[in-house]
Amino acid sequence: MDIQILLFGSLVDVFGKKQLQLAQVNDTDTLRLALSARYPSIRDAKFVISVDKKITVENTAIDTTSEIALLPPFSGG
C-alpha cells in the first residue's frame, strides 16, 4: 500500500502536483530519505512533516492510514 502525502506552498511547484503517493515507509526519517532519493530537487528544500495533523519534531512512526503533509515556511507579507 502507498502512503498519501499532502503538499503545500512551493512544494506543489517542486513536485508538480498537490498530492504525492509513495511506497510505504515506516517513519518520518525514512520518508525524508525516500523523498530525496526519488526527487533530488527537493534535497535542499526546507519543510516540516506533519503526521495526523501534528508537526513532527523527532522521528515519528507512520503507516498507510497516517495523514501526512509537507509544509514549507512562507515569508511573504
Binding site: 503545500f8 515556511p73 512562507f74 515569508s75 511573504g76 507579507g77
Partner: peptide, 8 residues
Amino acid sequence: GAVFQYEG
C-alpha cells in the same frame, strides 16, 4: 502571518 502566492 505569512503568504505565498495563493496560500497563507
